[in-house]
Design a binder for these strands. Structure first.
Length: 274
DNA sequence: AACACGCCCTGCGCGC
DNA sequence: TGCGCGCAGGGCGTGT
């Protein structure tokens, strides 16, 4: 599934293709995904003026023109790919954004957990989907360790659940929560407020490291919906615990254990993460 | 305020 | 072989 590193990679690619260019047409093949798509407003925003910037906030990609912005969330199964207009449309293509040269960005999302929405210029930072988001873990101006420590003082919930709370920190999904906790040798079930400042310093470092490595590993490409193996082309980071139930820990060879927290799978090493 | 939980949705893997 | 069930999960909304 698309995580922060993939969205970041996507944003960089889309930025390169789009900034300074206009869409000649925007069409929707269905009017809703999770909720109704503001189709008319998005057409107005995207076709009247060229794109002046493409940014990311958490796992949201934001495409800006002087008329407003489009927010894109890929949900669980979303893709935003660049195709030749002659290329056959894949099933579950919900929106098509056509460029002057005939190529088109296509929004494809089989499970429809994604989002396409409009943002007015004056509400960019007040939009309900964006205003409550926590800090960006990879932003240089953010002291992630300090932020996590301070925000966790009153939180009795498990640290893994705490890490996945996007109002605290964005972009740490189920995979990276497990991976960073394993790297930091912290038990995912421990209460967030029980961890010391020192532990959060280590944890923050591991979060930043694993996300950065994933970005370096290369996210999806814009043009190839499927890689040569027939996979959707998500980056291939070497995951240490996620999805490795009953397999040996890469540090101590103990069997990785899978549990459930907040209805999500958690993977941990019972020895390294006591 | 904190937090648990339900819901949205389709593809896929598994068991019978 | 084929079918049906259960799981996968981000994030918002609701209830306690």
């Amino acid at each position: 599934m698309p995580e922060l590193p993939e969205v970041e990679t996507l944003v960089r690619g889309v930025r390169q293709e789009l900034v300074g260019k206009s869409f000649v047409s925007v069409s929707f093949l269905r009017a809703d995904i999770r909720e109704p798509i503001p189709t008319l407003r998005l057409k107005q925003i995207l076709t009247s003026q060229p794109v002046h910037s493409v940014t990311r906030r958490g796992k949201y990609m934001l495409i800006h023109t002087s008329q407003g912005s489009m927010g894109v969330h890929l949900g669980m199964s979303g893709k935003f790919v660049l195709s030749a207009s002659s290329q056959e449309r894949l099933p579950h293509t919900h929106a098509v954004f056509e460029l002057v040269d005939g190529r088109q960005f296509r929004f494809i999302d089989p499970r429809r957990f994604g989002r396409l929405f409009s943002i007015e210029c004056e509400e960019l930072n007040e939009h309900p989907f964006l205003s409550k988001l926590g800090v960006e873990p990879l932003n240089d101006d953010v002291n992630l360790a300090k932020h996590l420590f301070q925000s966790s003082r009153s939180k009795s919930q498990a640290v893994k659940v705490f890490l996945m709370d996007s109002s605290v920190v964005v972009g740490v999904g189920n995979i990276y929560a497990s991976e960073s906790l394993w790297r930091a040798k912290i038990n995912p079930h421990v209460s967030a407020k029980q961890l010391t400042s020192k532990m959060y310093t280590n944890l923050a470092r591991q979060i930043i490291k694993v996300l950065s490595e994933a970005i370096l590993a290369g996210g999806t490409t814009l043009k190839d919906y499927r890689n040569k193996d027939g996979n959707p082309g998500y980056f291939q980071l070497n995951l240490a615990v996620y999805g490795r139930e009953a397999k040996p820990c890469r540090k101590c060879a103990a069997m990785i254990v899978k549990t459930t927290q907040a209805a999500r799978s958690t993977y941990q090493c019972p020895i390294c993460q006591k």
